[in-house]
Design a protein around this nucleic acid. Structure first.
Lengths: 155, 155
DNA sequence: CGGGCACACTTGAGAGTTCAACCAATGCAG
DNA sequence: CTGCATTGGTTGAACTCTCAAGTGTGCCCG
């Protein structure tokens, strides 16, 4: 169903320029990170799964929690985890406290892969973003994205 | 082929926090924009195609130019344009000056769709980004993304 | 002028994602 | 307790994207 009757508050020219630069910049950032990770057979989504699993003491996390942290739909996560399971990067184990639950757990192989990929990934993040911008702008980026994340949902 | 022997220059804790906020923030921004555009049967990629076509006097543009502007692979653009053509949003016409070339041209319907969707899209951009951040941080975002885009390719 | 390389775009198959059911366990209301 | 909405996760089909290969045109160099 299409929304109707909006009073258009257009963006100023300067705002439009910034917005387009945002689209180009993020496009480039994600493209380069994906390209770099491809050498390890991963994409950014999978890499983030590894990172969040490894953040936890036992390298395991419930599917739904993981889905929230990596901002993927449950369905997508199920499929992705299945693929990664087939590659021996992680396993699924039953959740002890809730019989509906499933936990994804990093295998040793999966952890080793993360350890191998991480330095290259970090280097990419530096090369494409951190090292090419003014430190104070980078700080501002953090403030800005913090505000975006905390803004109320308002579906 | 995997890259080898990297000296890891890790990110500081503050930098990591900013980086994760960047991932979350952009994730949210794109998710909301896509959700809003879905009511018009579009996603952000298709919407950008409409915008760039409408930027030109005749509402037409060569495929490869368009591909560059929207940062999509030629292959992807071919598929997307085919789909949009099937929906009567645009047409393909032969390029007069180069027989290899193809131009995508907005139909009246396609232009009408853009006109209808645009105000809602702009409103989304405001709601999810422009209106929730400090103006000076938004300016900084522009500066920062400008630097990212202009940074040398260094494959 | 003609051989060959580069460019513009398309194609099709495989890989990944989305969307709408679906099943099973939980938990709360009466 | 029992009924029923909710939550957690999966499934499969339809759709989209990627990657490598293919077609046809332009252009340069001898």
């Amino acid at each position: 169903m299409r929304p109707t009757s909006i009073k258009p508050r257009w963006l100023s020219t300067e705002q439009q320029v910034i917005w387009r630069q945002f689209l180009s910049g993020t496009g480039r950032i994600f493209a380069e990170l994906d390209a770099e990770l491809r050498s390890f057979g991963l994409d950014l989504g999978e890499y983030e799964i590894l990172v969040h699993l490894s953040d936890n003491p036992d390298h395991e996390l419930r599917m739904s929690e993981l889905a929230d942290k990596v901002r993927q739909s449950r369905s997508r996560l199920t499929h992705t985890v299945s693929r990664m399971e087939a590659k021996n990067i992680l396993t699924r184990i039953a959740c002890p406290s809730d019989r509906r639950g499933v936990m994804a757990k990093l295998t040793d192989e999966g952890y080793a892969l993360l350890v191998e990929a991480a330095p290259h990934h970090v280097e990419s993040v530096r090369r494409v973003l951190v090292d090419v911008v003014e430190p104070e702008d980078f700080i501002a980026l953090g403030r800005l994205m913090g505000a975006v994340v905390q803004a109320p949902e308002q579906s």
